[in-house]
């Protein structure tokens, strides 16, 4: 029996979300083999997408009531499968994983470590590394319950690549939920359709601050277009309504670690830095030469963003054209 159970995350339409690949890589760090559990109204089809990652088994729980994610419906089945001998249950710390896994922990009376950067196994004892205090400390924790649960931070764990092979798919029945499930109604998800890559997965992120004001998208779109980047924002820009809430990069929003992060008109509050300081190359454009963001930027440009950003988009387009 495998050691780790990975809970797969599906998109609204029932395809496997990339976050599942990060969770698989996290399970591989823990060692001892892993299986995957897919829940959804089209779980069997999604399970087929996951047979090439070296899992011992891929469990598929297909049920019409699992079409939309609701923790109260998902948790009982996850807990039941976990009880078949798994020591660790993992998912990625997306809004799905962070909502579901602690609820499963409650059901199993297991300890839970959220938002982990990594896990190491020493003679079978697992140690989880967790960022704390807005990324200003790492804590290494061990848990002592028979079944443990953990989510991994997507920006810290590179997604697993398919290894070939063909894991057997086994269907499992949905476990009847408790009274809680009859007292919650899922009324839908309003998603913002975007051609851009997802913020958590993009290799280039351009983020804007409150200084851009109502021109937020006028300024950010051309730059994001030329770089194929995802757009992020500071908390201040989101709070002021210039950018949608789910654009927020920071301790309390999305944590990102792209190859290139460009901060535009962002001063660099502690909680923002916590969300992007893992980026490989950081560029800051700000007219205030004393802005704290310059203390960690690889390349800083002190300039008026309303002139510099359109110019940067043009120069990048020229560079791209010259490169072919």
């Amino acid at each position: 029996m495998a050691n780790v159970l990975v809970v797969a995350e599906l998109t609204e339409t029932g395809a496997v979300r990339k976050t599942t690949h990060n969770a698989i890589a996290f399970a591989q760090q823990a060692g001892g083999g892993f299986s995957i559990l897919v829940l959804g109204d089209k779980a069997s089809a999604a399970a087929q997408e996951l047979t090439g990652f070296g899992a011992e088994k891929v469990f598929a729980c297909e049920d019409a009531s699992l079409g939309a994610y609701v923790a109260e419906h998902f948790a009982p089945t996850v807990a039941e499968v976990a009880k078949q001998g798994f020591r660790l249950v993992v998912a990625t710390a997306s809004s799905f994983g962070k909502d579901l896994l602690p609820r499963v922990a409650g059901r199993l009376d297991g300890a839970y470590a959220g938002d982990c950067a990594s896990v190491t196994s020493n003679g079978g004892a697992l140690t989880f590394k967790r960022p704390m205090f807005a990324g200003n400390a790492f804590g290494y924790c061990q848990m002592s319950t028979p079944i443990q649960l953990a989510t991994c931070r997507q920006s810290e764990v590179d997604p697993a690549e398919p290894t070939g092979g063909s894991s057997p798919v086994e269907s499992v029945a949905k476990v009847a939920p408790g009274a809680a499930a009859s007292r919650i109604q899922h009324l839908g998800v309003a998603t913002v359709k975007s051609e851009r890559p997802e913020l958590g997965e993009a290799s280039v992120v351009v983020s804007g601050g409150r200084a851009i004001k109502e021109k937020f998208f006028d300024i950010m779109n051309p730059l994001a277009d030329v770089l194929g980047a995802a757009i992020g924002a500071s908390r201040a820009a989101c709070d002021a309504g210039y950018a949608p809430g789910d654009y927020q990069v920071g301790q309390t929003g999305k944590i990102v670690a792209p190859s290139l992060y460009i901060a535009i008109g962002i001063s660099g509050a502690i909680q923002h830095i916590a969300g992007m300081k893992g980026s490989k190359t950081i560029v800051a454009i700000n007219k205030d030469a004393e802005a704290p963001i310059f203390q960690l930027a690889d390349y800083g440009l002190v300039a008026d963003l309303f002139q510099a950003v359109p110019e940067l988009a043009q120069e990048l387009a020229k560079h791209k054209a010259a490169k072919g």
Partner: peptide, 24 residues
Amino acid sequence: TRYVKYEAPPGRKAGIKVKDVQEL
């Protein structure tokens, strides 16, 4: 849950200031 160790994250040094968009 027991924390066995804490450590500070690796520091990040400030890079350079570029003079204009072309140099960037």
